[in-house]
């Protein structure tokens, strides 16, 4: 793939109780929507922690828009917007205060931050709640705020770790649709980590992670062919049915 936004190669990680990631490698191109599909415990969150440099892997490399996450971490992190599985909003601050804090951490000035906050909250229909404390928002609204926050610094690449966990069906559908629109219309590369099959759309790229290893990757059709299945749900079941190695 030419000029991938995210390039992962030869990644291994061990918490000291056995390998959690084994020789993981894949790429995500500009404007594409890639689903990192894997059951609980597959290593998705660990992979995301490595991409965002919460941990460092002793092997392999991760590059974001050509910048190595370890050696050029500032340039790499400036291009990533991330929504973690666990909410990272300050519950006692308002929506607007949370967004201004994030903007400051990315070096944005007050005026520019204000304009972008209005724009992103408007995009996610959260403008009227900008003055509310996060503690008073429901799960769906908090997730929308987190996605809006992740876009404030205009990243090339949006990383979402199980962003719909705990949400009701309409909220889930809305957030999945929002994220696909960002890739399609905004040209942002998206890596969406999930264990929920119904969040995979036909045009998505899929990376199937099981027990820390990539067991299939490619378009939905390519993954189905590799699994010998007719649909992505069946493919997922077949590919993740193997016993742990």
């Amino acid at each position: 793939m030419d000029n991938p936004v995210l390039e992962v190669a030869g990644l291994n990680y061990d918490f000291g109780k056995g390998p959690v990631l084994k020789d993981v490698g894949f790429s995500v191109g500009p404007g594409s929507f890639a689903v990192l599909l894997g059951p609980n415990g597959a290593g998705k969150t660990t992979l995301i922690s490595l991409i965002t440099r919460l941990y460092d892997s002793p092997t392999g490399h991760i590059r974001v828009a050509g910048h190595d996450v370890k050696r050029q971490s500032g340039q790499a992190l400036a291009r990533i917007g991330v929504v973690f599985q666990q909410s990272t909003l300050d519950l006692d601050l308002t929506v607007r205060q949370n967004l201004y804090y994030h903007a400051a951490l990315h070096g944005l000035g007050q005026r520019e931050a204000g304009e972008r906050i209005e724009q992103e909250l408007g995009r996610f229909e959260m403008l009227e709640r900008a003055g509310e404390k996060v503690r008073n928002l429901n799960g769906g609204h908090r997730r929308r705020v987190e996605i809006a926050r992740a876009l404030l610094h205009r990243p090339d690449f949006l990383l979402l770790d199980e962003p719909t966990v705990g949400l009701d069906v309409p909220s889930r559908r809305a957030i999945v649709a929002h994220a696909h629109r960002l890739a399609r219309e905004g040209g942002i590369a998206v890596l969406w980590a999930t264990h929920l099959i119904d969040e995979v759309f036909d045009g998505d790229d899929v990376i199937v992670l099981h027990n820390g290893e990539i067991v299939a990757q490619g378009s939905v059709n390519e993954v189905n062919r590799a699994a010998g299945a007719t649909g992505i749900a069946d493919s997922f079941d077949r590919l993740t049915a193997r016993a742990p190695t």
């Binding site: 965002t52 440099r53 919460l54 971490s73 500032g74 340039q75 790499a76 992190l77 400036a78 990533i80 991330v82 973690f84 666990q86 909410s87 990272t88 909003l89 300050d90 519950l91 804090y101 994030h102 951490l105 990315h106 070096g107």
Partner: peptide, 18 residues
Amino acid sequence: EMGSMKTLLVSPLPRWFL
């Protein structure tokens, strides 16, 4: 524990500065 430290640590500015 609550997760909000991640917001600080994924800033592109050097960790020592943060």
